[in-house]
Design a protein around this nucleic acid. Structure first.
Lengths: 205, 205, 205, 205
DNA sequence: AATGAATGAGAATTCATTCAT
DNA sequence: AATGAATGAATTCTCATTCAT
């Protein structure tokens, strides 16, 4: 459908060149539609971004569902699972993740910002609940939950946003994100699981 | 000096509204100079960004110097010190950090990207050396160093870029970045130190 | 009927915002019909204006009929009656009068202009005949008939077109045209009758 | 000067095709300047109209001065003089008069409307004072002054706005406004003087 | 008969840059 | 060295109209 074509072209271009750096002409060209269609369908460039957020926001709920399937899992197992899911998800939706990261750190329309904050809140809640459950069961120790979530998301984000940096580190030329994702995914999962589980379960002091 | 005024106005505006979202007219107005001055001094908007990067890149070296002062420190102490330094530095230069984060995740001029990657490489090297020293001294265990650095930078980044998200979480209205920084800085330092040192020193498996 | 709905919406909007300032989308919205209907029914925006003129032109004939009812009236009485009728008519159809006034003073389609000139000619003829009759009966003196008609129509026009000016003069806020009409109507009639009858009947020189 | 060139081109085109019917491209072309110059000089099309009003508004004061030269003139003489001046002025500035007439009868920007109302108020005051002086000297009888002014301005307006109508009446083809003005000017002056002076001085009832 | 989808042309405005001084 | 004036290109968006159904 044409509306979807536009949304997907917009996502690609916003990710590549930024929201401001992308013209509606670019989007129309990539989507193979008339320029006027974008105003016709979405009203304006800004509302197109809002629509894109709503269009992509949906995928959060799947995650929650996946975790709810085995409610009796061990908290460590749940943490491992949630890390797997988040790494997969952010790397899969890296384009949307890029757009969100950038837009959130800018002065932008309140409505757009609020939509993004809502998504981040849901993410936080999911992980928070798992950690709290582990703490209640005396399996996890006391930690700064918000910042622990920041560490998980921040680490994945860092890897996602700095593809060109890590490519250069690994002495490989600029590759497609899918290739990059394949090379780095399991490494990130392994690192994060070890890091977070050590942190949550190791009793030092 | 006028050149500095322009660079600082550019930094503020690029951070607030993005590189593409900022017009040279905006910059000239905020800097209180004639519009033509920007082309006159820097050649073009793009070269102004390059100049800004070079202008700000310098501050990395200070960091290195600070660490070199006590070469015989205990690796744990060195890690603590480097975390303090990075948190301070990124929060102080949050505007420049924002600009870099955003620009690095976009398709942008090779020259600009290379400058940014160079800065990131220096950061990596500094921390890498400390961790490797700790490993040689059998104080730190074997870890994925690149991703551990990604975790440190990623966590600080996350806190820096998502001010509006964390403001909302803490139930406070949008405040200035300086106020935000004051409220969050020690918390981030504490979390990161505990996290990274636990990870590097706890022997579990 | 839908065609009428469109014509009335068009009249309102053309009066409020001018022909060029009104979009067919506006008209369709106000009329509560599909945008395509306007081209479908009328062919084009321009032909819609033509249709509107024809739709409204009809009301002139009523006037003529009203005057013909008492053919033996005294010319002074006839003049009074014609002034009453014109004031009533222009104030009632102020929207259409506005549209005509504006369009006539512009370079516009010949066909549209000719339609409007035709209406004005009929108006002129009606009054002209009464004055000439009065002159034949030696009740009215010799005057420049065309310009006397210009004075009658011009005075009513002035009051009709400058509502906001007269509102401000009378120290009242912007009111609906109907309210304005009620306040001003009898005053205009009284003034015009006195003016024109004095002019036509007073023998000075 | 270029700014004046633009203002004059705008006046011509606004008079010919209306404000909405004129594009800034048209204006730029007729003025022989770059399109961007209009935004550069005036900010926007709307502000260009505001500037035009201010640019032309000035000529009112000349009128006042002309009347003040012979303060001891007989009121009848003053009325004759003021009619001469208004006919001359409106016919000379017919373009600006057209623009004002049209814009005043539309829903337009408050600022623009207020500027126009101000001009009309000044006109009213000038004539009002003369009539009141005549009344004080028992030369003029009691009349509705506001509407008497409406009659003077309305009559001249009618002749000015309906050129094509009067051309057709006089069985002449569409001629330039200057030619039209020459043909009609003295006729209008004669008619209006006779009309108004008869009205103000004839004691009937 | 009636309409939602679609479009090319054109609207006003802003852009980064250059030029003449 | 410094700048006000100027500009071509590009921006987003709206326009009246047409088309397929």
């Amino acid at each position: 459908m044409k509306k979807e074509k536009i949304l997907e072209a917009a996502e690609e271009l916003f990710a590549e060149k930024g929201y401001e750096g992308t013209s509606v002409r670019d989007i129309a060209n990539r989507a193979g539609v008339n320029i006027a269609m974008i105003s016709y369908y979405f009203g304006s460039k800004e509302k197109l971004l809002e629509s894109l957020i709503q269009y992509r926001a949906g995928y959060t709920s799947d995650l929650l569902d996946a975790l709810k399937k085995n409610p009796d899992d061990h908290p460590v197992h749940k943490i491992e699972k949630v890390i797997d899911l988040y790494v997969d998800r952010i790397l899969t939706h890296h384009r949307f993740h890029n757009i969100m990261s950038r837009q959130l750190s800018m002065i932008s329309e309140k409505k757009i910002k609020d939509q993004m904050i809502e998504i981040k809140k849901q993410n936080l809640e999911i992980i928070k609940k798992i950690i709290e459950e582990g703490q209640r069961k005396k399996i996890f120790r006391k930690v700064d939950i918000e910042l622990t979530v920041a560490t998980i998301i921040g680490t994945i984000s860092q890897v996602t946003l700095s593809k060109s940096f890590y490519c250069q580190l690994m002495h490989i030329p600029e590759i497609s994100f899918d290739e990059y994702s394949m090379r780095i995914k399991s490494r990130v999962k392994k690192h994060l699981k070890k890091l977070i589980i050590t942190y949550l379960t190791c009793d030092m002091e």
